[in-house]
């Protein structure tokens, strides 16, 4: 096992400071939204988590592509780790969205296209782990996992395009969804907190994926599969 890189330790410390920092910023620095009240503050971490999830799935697909061309195990570890971390971020996005939806929409869940497709995206990547666990060799897990990660990521734009189409056809249904639009009606303080959250979650994502990759490597070595 290689020594923990200095950069990773630095990243750990940064995350330990910045995540609570962002929270403080959101709780005490941003104004309370006039219509929705305090629950609107969920928005900052909600969008950031969704962003981090999407970014992880993208990283997983790119790492999968690099694996297929180089066949180096470390790229598979990166791909696997990104998906695992992305799933958690996706779950945070969904759960925080539900917390927001309860008082605002008066229900935990609506069958809105965006909610539904996000949930489906989680299922797509859950299936990734079922696929891996039913393959026998580390080599086939890596190879077929990479193909699946790439094909899955390729359908993400398709999914989001289909939401857009729903908009043009049923504008009324969508008006309820998407706190994303309100990002542009935010006050400067809200905007600042929003971008800080995005940045912090991106750092957190890199940190977690890095740790998880190192763990994957350790597991492989432990099973006698690694280099």
């Amino acid at each position: 096992m290689t020594k923990k890189p200095k950069l990773l330790s630095l990243l750990d410390i940064l995350c330990l400071i910045l995540v609570p920092g962002a929270l403080v910023l959101i709780l005490f620095f941003t104004p309370i939204e006039r219509v929705m009240g305090p629950v609107q503050k969920v928005f900052y971490f909600h969008v950031s988590a969704a962003w981090a999830g999407m970014l992880s799935f993208l990283i997983a697909a790119v790492a999968g592509g690099v694996y297929l061309s180089t066949r180096k195990q470390k790229w598979d570890w990166l791909s696997l780790s990104s998906i695992e971390v992305g799933l958690v971020f996706g779950l945070i996005a969904i759960l925080s969205g539900m917390i927001w939806a309860q008082p605002i929409w008066n229900t935990w869940w609506v069958w809105d296209p965006r909610l539904t497709t996000t949930a489906i995206m989680e299922l797509i990547y859950l299936a990734y782990f079922i696929l891996r666990s039913s393959l026998n060799t580390p080599e086939s897990r890596a190879r077929l996992g990479a193909v699946y990660a790439i094909v899955s990521a390729a359908t993400v734009p398709l999914t989001f395009f289909s939401i857009r189409l729903f908009r043009t056809i049923h504008p009324v249904v969508i008006a309820a969804g998407g706190s994303g639009e309100s990002a542009f009606n935010m006050t400067p303080r809200m905007l600042l907190a929003f971008f800080v959250s995005l940045f912090v979650f991106t750092l957190l994502l890199i940190d977690l994926v890095w740790h998880r990759s190192r763990l994957a490597r350790l597991q492989a070595v432990n099973r006698g599969e690694g280099v």
Binding site: T117, L158, S162
Partner: peptide, 11 residues
């Protein structure tokens, strides 16, 4: 089915 249905959903 587990692999196909979620990916084919937009279609």
């Amino acid at each position: 089915p587990v692999l196909l249905y979620p990916l084919a959903l937009p279609i």
